[in-house]
Design a protein around this nucleic acid. Structure first.
Lengths: 194, 194
DNA sequence: TGCTTTTGTAAGTACTTACTTACATTTTAT
DNA sequence: ATAAAATGTAAGTAAGTACTTACAAAAGCA
């Protein structure tokens, strides 16, 4: 079943782990090769350069299609239910891409541009989807007439802040992430009640 | 009036600018010295090492006392008024410390620990202050019985997300920061209404 | 003016790092 | 078994970088 990872994959995974922790400039090709359990020459034989290795990592492991699919297929038009699903999905996606996002955030002097392009797609798209969602809810008379764009930004940024914060210090408090999502959705549902 | 900046200050300011943009590892002492308009040796004569220079930068320009002072002296116990003031002050502080925060966020292989200590003080403190505030409001019967800690985290993280997002791409949309603060405070005030 | 402090220039050291080359060894496929 | 492909070892190159040393120029102060 679980066939051994290929040399290329081992290198990509090691690169993601190390660069996410130490930054692009702070991680050497020798370290990456050692962590992957291969020699440094093998790294260059496979990817040619440190930059191409990182680009390959992003192309292989960065995906963002779930949100659009969710908005097209799984909405119930009940505020509480939908926001809960959106919030949970948001954190699931972000968490899965956590390391790649950390890499983009930290930057680096010779860090390839592809990295930033990949990382900046999410928020723009989500804001549009959420704004449309709140607009429609208002047209349906299900929520009070509050600016849909502001509402979308508030919800999005609240979850981005929660995510960034948990990223840094996981043992921040005794409130678990899921409790926070549930309760904050409640808060929004109250605010939007017609 | 505006007496010329000392050599040490010129170096500190140049270091903050460059390292915030390029990261610690990605910025050379030669660059910093050139940006400050002095020679590289002068940098080492003043600070001894690249690390000490950064530590000096944090000690000189990182301050966080305003929030505590605000909570002790300027609260009116009207939700809308207070949250507006808190939100605005939060962004003012974060914005002033924007570059230092970016430095801490990006990290670096030899980046001194002091940097992280300085940067992690804000949020913990603010959460406590806000949680106490909402607890007291509830005791005064001015808001509905919603978990004060969750409310505090929601408000804090919403503003953190807004700040981080504006940090990355300033021309994000046509909603200005101040409009966002006002409207999001409205949203919270609605949610908390008894 | 003379003395001290600060700064610049020039050169260099010691170390790291991305990347290369040449050759021997192992693994895989047929 | 044998050829081909993938990997390891060893050594090295070229460039960058934090930091040092020695000496001369300049600026401030007595």
């Amino acid at each position: 079943m679980n066939q051994a990872a290929s040399t290329g994959d081992k290198l990509i995974l090691a690169a993601i782990d190390l660069i996410a922790e130490q930054g692009y400039d702070g991680t050497t090709t020798k370290e990456i090769a050692a962590a992957a359990g291969v020699s440094e020459v093998t790294l260059f034989r496979h990817f040619g350069s440190k930059q191409s290795l990182l680009v390959a990592a992003f192309e292989r492991y960065h995906y963002a299609g779930e949100m659009t699919k969710l908005f097209n297929e799984r909405l119930t038009w009940d505020v509480r239910t939908d926001l809960l699903l959106i919030g949970r999905t948001y954190h699931a996606i972000m968490n899965r891409n956590r390391k790649l996002l950390a890499i983009a955030q930290k930057g680096g002097s010779r860090l390839p541009e592809e990295v930033h392009k990949h990382a900046s797609q999410h928020p723009v798209q989500l804001k549009k989807l959420l704004t449309n969602y709140f607009s429609t809810l208002h047209e349906q008379g299900k929520i009070a007439p509050i600016d849909p764009e502001i509402t979308a930004m508030s919800f999005m940024w609240m979850n981005l802040g929660a995510f960034s914060s948990n990223l840094l210090e996981s043992s921040n408090s005794d409130v678990t992430l899921d409790t926070f999502i549930e309760q904050s959705v409640d808060l929004f549902a109250r605010a939007l009640a017609p």
